[in-house]
């Protein structure tokens, strides 16, 4: 098995980006760190610098003002980096799709700068913490597939994750 992907599975550094969310997803993400869920068990920790990140947790609709900053942020991360869209807003703008101050969907924003980005989607408004852990598990499976497929080009998107 490819050691790169094996170790990536075991140690995920997460950077949380709030791109115009309503806090629901954000407090549920914090919930993951606290004793009830404690994701440090799986080697997942929140980091303070996007350079160290393996996963960008994006919550919220990605408003106009945020779009450019989100792209810049993604470019700053060291690849491979998985973008995880948490919640209905980040997925497909949810209830805010028609609002005047939102930009494109989060995945479109990321694809604009990197067509081959690995993007995972966690639906739910907000997704339950269990669903987010499930998303991580599915991401691991995807990484396994990628590891098997290397050095072929990276598949465009992850399957939707069940839950919530």
């Amino acid at each position: 098995m490819n050691w790169k992907f094996w170790s990536l599975k075991k140690s995920l550094f997460v950077y949380h980006v709030n791109a115009g969310a309503c806090n629901n997803c954000d407090i549920e993400i914090l919930e993951l760190l606290t004793p009830a869920y404690d994701v440090e068990r799986f080697g997942i920790i929140l980091v303070g610098s996007p350079r160290h990140a393996d996963v960008l947790l994006v919550t919220g609709v990605c408003t106009r003002q945020v779009k450019k900053r989100l792209q810049e942020l993604y470019l700053q991360t060291a690849k491979p980096c998985v973008v995880m869209c948490i919640g209905a807003c980040a997925l497909a703008q949810g209830i805010f799709a028609e609002a005047y101050h939102v930009g494109p969907c989060v995945d479109e924003v990321i694809r604009e700068v990197d067509p081959n980005a690995i993007i995972a989607y966690v639906p739910g408004c907000p997704p339950k913490p269990e669903a987010m852990i499930m998303a991580v598990v599915k991401t691991w499976q995807k990484l396994d597939e990628l590891a098997a497929a290397e050095p072929k080009p990276v598949a465009p998107a992850l399957p939707e994750v069940a839950g919530a």
Binding site: K4, F5, S7, K10, S11, E40, R41, D54
Partner: peptide, 17 residues
């Protein structure tokens, strides 16, 4: 808390990035 091999895996992963 993390499993016993966590610090090592962190380093191995960073090596592959």
């Amino acid at each position: 808390g993390p499993p016993w091999y966590q610090p090592a895996v962190d380093c191995i992963k960073l090596m592959g990035k």
